[in-house]
Design a protein around this nucleic acid. Structure first.
Lengths: 122, 122
DNA sequence: AGTTAATTTCGATAGTTGTCGAAATGACGA
DNA sequence: TCGTCATTTCGACAACTATCGAAATTAACT
């Protein structure tokens, strides 16, 4: 029962569900996800480690970035079923559709330069 | 997305999941559920109203009792799918199996009568 | 080695949740 | 109508959670 409860908890936060759906489009680094969600980096980071601990996503180093992606195939049947259900339930969701659009445009290289610009403006 | 989140929240508590699985056996009143779970009546009552608000169960008056039961058929596709998934995930769960056994023995008339009978029933 | 950028960890905080016991409500039967 | 019993509501409390900003960590590039 514990696994079920843990997965349900993971899915019971709006921002975590948004993250999962974004990762269906492509693997993403923390700063990209942060830029789409508009939350503090530390908040996103902690959502990501929770999702990793539950076994829904994996992470790997990519230079100075950490890339997160959905854990497909090898993950337990249960989380697969849950993800399918979530996908089904949200296939017409406004927020999710807009997130996916942003996801496709967002680019870790560009985020950097805009950060630099932001600092110059100070 | 809100419905998904609400259902996930409902399923993210151990005792609520146990209640849902018990109700698969038969409709039950608050005192019967309380007697199986071993929680305070008020706690069980608030779990039940949450589950009702989410749309997973319904209630109806039956004399001095309030009978709760799963909302089948007419409920939204989403909660149907979730319930199927939960059933699947827990079909061999020790706690759930033991709950179901107790559920079949429990009887609202006997709960009232005496503490001794309550103990025998366990 | 020092600088910069991305991420994680830490500390604080406000809000939510699960739980209980007590009080209030509602229904039945004497 | 009164008392009893099942249930709900209320008030309190401890535990947990989502969030932020700051500090620490990690990695790449001078």
């Amino acid at each position: 029962m514990d696994e079920l409860i843990k997965i349900a908890k993971a899915l019971s936060d709006r921002n975590r569900v948004r993250i999962l759906k974004m990762l269906e489009s492509k693997p993403m680094c923390v700063c990209e996800i942060t830029s789409v969600l508009g939350l503090a980096t530390s908040t996103v980071s902690s959502h990501l480690s929770l999702l990793r601990d539950v076994g829904l996503i994996t992470d790997r180093k990519d230079g100075k970035w950490v890339e997160y992606q959905l854990k497909n195939g090898t993950k337990s049947l249960l989380s697969n079923q849950f993800m399918k259900l979530v996908g089904d339930a949200l296939k017409d969701d406004e927020v999710i559709l807009s997130d996916i659009e942003k996801t496709q445009k967002v680019d870790r290289e560009i985020i950097t330069s805009s950060t630099i610009l932001k600092n110059i403006m100070k």
